[in-house]
């Protein structure tokens, strides 16, 4: 195989290299994780006791530091009693890939809730509803306002300074306030996502709107376009691909506010699932839930990116 391309500064990556590197970027971390989990002499700092032997304070299923375990074995040897037995394990917070995978599969195979516990899918569905409404409400205000601010300098001067101030206030700081105003259920959670997204959205989109090629605007004006017609025939279609890209990035931000939002009031959704499972030390479930967030987030973004190729063919090819 020829030398892999793409390692020169600002060089180009060939198609083959791209596929190989893309695969490796997923495989390498997984391999590292598998190695740490399945090869006993890599790390494994603890011992899971399988037989307490003569030591009183040991119990079956207990985890302890390797050094402490060895000391216990020596003590028992010296006392002439039965030595405790155990296997080297990783800490409870690092389950193996297989364990996480089976927890992940379990979530889909057995989606019904057991008792009052919500299943991972039910919890996640709740989260998706929160983020959907948060993002929709934010966009309904933020996109038109952002476009108008970008196109009307006076409005921009009127709106942007205060928005600039508001965006520096961390969204979680509004938590208590939102609960006081909107109660403890879903409304304050949606509000936190709106607060986290909206102010950035206004500024990012107004900036995108301002970057529209001025030559196109002037050409349109000499062709008799003005006011609303200019807006909808030139400004909107002209910025649409960039606006779409902005929305994709902002959706990613909305996800980061989700976890904070779900801790507000009565904790709910995937965050509630994660904290609950962590409390039971079911870390395989915790990782499965985190993976689910990642997969759904990346999946929607890839889907939207793929759609953009068809929606904005003119932009793709001119760049």
């Amino acid at each position: 195989m020829s030398r892999m391309s793409g390692w020169a500064l600002y060089g180009k990556v060939g198609r083959k290299s791209r596929v190989v590197l893309g695969g490796l970027s997923i495989l390498l971390p997984l391999l590292l994780w598998s190695a740490v989990s399945y090869v006993p002499f890599i790390w494994h700092p603890q011992v899971l006791v399988t037989d307490p032997g003569g030591e009183d304070y040991l119990e079956e299923g207990m985890r302890m530091k390797r050094a402490d375990f060895e000391r216990a074995v020596q003590e028992m040897h010296a006392a002439g009693q039965k030595a405790p037995e155990g296997v080297a394990v990783n800490p409870v917070y690092l389950p193996s890939p297989g364990g996480v995978f089976s927890a992940f599969v379990q979530a889909f195979v057995q989606p019904d809730s057991r008792g009052p516990e919500k299943s991972i899918l039910q919890a996640f569905w709740h989260s998706i509803q929160i983020i959907f409404w948060g993002f929709v409400i934010s966009s309904v205000i933020g996109v038109p306002l952002g476009v108008l601010c970008g196109a009307l300098p006076a409005l921009s001067r009127l709106v942007e300074p205060s928005v600039d101030f508001l965006r520096y206030l961390p969204a979680p700081a509004f938590g208590a306030l939102m609960v006081a105003i909107l109660g403890i259920y879903d409304a304050p959670k949606i509000a936190i996502i709106v607060i986290g997204t909206l102010f950035q959205q206004i500024l990012v989109i107004s900036n995108t709107t301002r970057k529209l090629d001025f030559g196109l605007m002037e050409a349109a004006r000499t062709l008799g376009a003005r006011g609303k017609r200019l807006m909808f025939s030139v400004v909107v279609p002209g910025i649409l691909p960039d606006l779409y890209r902005d929305q994709r990035i902002l959706l990613g931000w909305a996800w980061t506010y989700l976890i904070v939002a779900e801790l507000i009031g009565t904790s709910s959704g995937i965050t509630w699932f994660i904290t609950q499972q962590a409390r039971y030390q079911h870390f395989a479930n915790v990782y499965a839930a985190m993976a689910l967030i990642g997969i759904v987030g990346l999946g929607t973004d890839m889907l939207l990116g793929f759609a953009a190729r068809f929606l904005f063919r003119w932009k793709q090819e001119t760049e």
Binding site: D213, G215, L216, E218, A219, A220, R221, T222, L223, G224, R226, V234, P237, G238, L240, F312, W314, K315, T318
Partner: peptide, 19 residues
């Protein structure tokens, strides 16, 4: 102000790329 009675052709290419 600009109006359709005076058409203009610019030095830069100003065709609307999405049309």
């Amino acid at each position: 102000g600009p109006g359709p009675d005076r058409g203009m052709v610019f030095q830069k290419y100003t065709l609307f790329p999405w049309r």
